[in-house]
Amino acid sequence: MSGRKEFYTFRGYSLHSARRPDSLTPSMEDYLEMIYRLAQRDGYTRVLELAAALHVQPPSASRMIQRLADSDFLVYEKYSIIRLTPRGEEIGSFLIHRHNTLEAFLRLLGVEDVLEDAEKIEHNISTAALTAIEQLLAFFKEHPAYRATWESYRRPQE
Rank of each mutant, 00 (worst) to 15 (best):
K78P: 11
R147D: 00
I65W: 00
L130R: 06
I35C: 05
E119D: 12
D113M: 12
P144K: 05
F7Y: 12
I96Y: 02
E158S: 15
S14M: 14
L136W: 06
D72R: 04
Q135M: 10
R154Q: 06
L38M: 03
D30W: 07
P59L: 01
L38S: 12
Y8D: 07
D30N: 15
A69G: 07
Y44G: 00
D72C: 03
I121E: 01
E6R: 12
F105S: 02
Y36Q: 09
A138N: 04
A53E: 08
L106A: 02
T85G: 05
R67D: 01
Q57E: 12
V114S: 02
G3H: 09
R19M: 09
S27A: 09
L50W: 05
Q40N: 08
A129F: 10
I81G: 02
F7P: 00
S14G: 10
E77V: 15
I133A: 04
W150S: 05
H97P: 00
L54D: 00
S93F: 13
L136Y: 01
R4T: 14
I81M: 13
R41A: 13
P26D: 06
A18E: 08
T9C: 11
Q40L: 14
Y79Q: 04
R63A: 06
Y44F: 15
V111Q: 03
V47L: 10
P156A: 10
S23Y: 15
H143C: 09
D113V: 08
E29T: 03
Q135H: 10
V111T: 13
G3E: 15
A104L: 00
A128T: 09
A69Q: 12
G110Y: 03
F105Y: 06
M28E: 14
P156W: 11
R63L: 12
V75A: 06
H55L: 11
T127R: 15
E142D: 11
Y8E: 12
L102K: 03
F140Y: 07
A39V: 04
N100S: 09
Y31G: 06
F105L: 01
P26Y: 05
Y146R: 05
D70V: 09
Q66I: 08
I65F: 03
R11D: 14
R19C: 13
A129E: 05
G92E: 01
